[in-house]
């Protein structure tokens, strides 16, 4: 059985492997890793059902791996190999799978998530959109919060507030607070630390149940982005001093074994996917029931 620790470690090693592949020149384009932010999607995973629609963003590998046990499909997507989730067309930040969509423009997914929530209203399912603190610079966020509250939609907005947008610290980009902005729209807001999976679930279980009946919610997690924005563009100093669940949990019983298992699993996925033929793009093939 896959435990939360297994999932956390899978995401951690997957992201490390990507940076390693980039360093070796084996990946095309760019990628945004979620190193340090893994706890958020892992904590949320059992709170979301198969009928819920998840909207992810540019930093979405953890969101995907917490919802689907499919590191090979994701890596194949990023590497343009056979078996890729979207034939290698979308790449790291544009993925569609049943009940899951990621796209790369900041704030763009929120109105779409409102549309999905409108579709789902009354069914007990919800639309969940991951955004960052930097996303709050986009007007679409506010148009969407207004609609979600106005229409009583099952919309869960998960904010991974890592204090930095690419290279810009939040204090240079945001006046006031996310909580106050939510209050202005009459949208419930909860701020949580992202260091304890069980504690997060305890707090969120009743709140997410309320979302399902039409009370939109913004959950703001304080997280640390331990990696660069994309490949090797970190402008910060002192990143190694930031709190890291990986270090904190390293003396937990069984950690070393789980860590070795995840590292080996990712290593074998990398070897296996690299050996696959290039993906082919069936442009005209139609996908139903996305």
């Amino acid at each position: 059985m896959t435990t939360d620790l297994d999932r956390l470690l899978l995401i951690r090693h997957f992201e490390r492997a990507l940076l390693d592949l980039f360093a070796k020149g084996e990946l095309n384009g760019t990628t945004h890793t979620c190193l340090g932010q893994e706890i958020v999607p892992v904590a949320l995973a059992p709170l979301l059902g198969p009928d819920d629609h998840v909207f992810s963003n540019h930093r979405g590998h953890g969101h995907y791996l917490a919802r689907f046990d499919d590191p090979a499909g994701l890596l194949a997507e990023i590497m343009g190999r056979e078996g890729a989730v979207c034939d290698g067309v979308g790449g790291s930040q544009h993925i569609l799978r049943e009940g899951y969509l990621s796209t790369g423009v900041q704030g763009e997914s929120l109105p779409v998530a409102v549309g999905a929530a409108l579709h789902l209203r009354g069914s007990g399912a919800l639309a969940c959109a991951y955004i960052g603190d930097g996303t709050w610079g986009e007007g679409a966020v506010y148009e969407s919060l207004n609609l979600a509250a106005l229409w009583g939609l099952p919309l869960l907005v998960v904010v991974e507030h890592n204090g930095i947008a690419q290279t810009t610290p939040t204090e240079l980009a945001m006046s006031g607070t996310i909580g106050a902005r939510c209050a202005a729209f009459g949208v419930a807001h909860t701020a949580l630390p992202a260091d304890d999976v069980s504690a997060i679930r305890t707090v969120l279980t009743p709140l997410v149940a309320a979302v399902r009946t039409g009370s939109p919610l913004v959950v703001e997690f304080a997280v640390n982005r331990l990696g660069p924005h994309s490949k090797g563009d970190d402008t910060r100093s002192g990143v190694s001093e930031l709190r890291d669940w990986y270090r904190d949990m390293s003396d937990v019983t069984g950690f070393a074994e789980a860590d070795a298992r995840a590292r080996d699993l990712v290593g074998s996925v990398v070897r296996e996917v690299k050996a696959r033929p290039l993906s082919t793009w069936g442009r005209q093939a139609v996908r139903r029931g996305a």
């Binding site: 779409v112 549309g115 929530a117 409108l118 579709h119 148009e143 207004n146």
Partner: peptide, 23 residues
């Protein structure tokens, strides 16, 4: 009827369409 939010209402339409509705 919607607020004066052209970006959001177009996105809402896209979200409905993505879920199989006609918008």
């Amino acid at each position: 009827t919607t607020p004066i939010s052209e970006s959001a209402i177009t996105g809402v339409g896209a979200g409905l369409a993505l879920c199989g509705d006609t918008a």
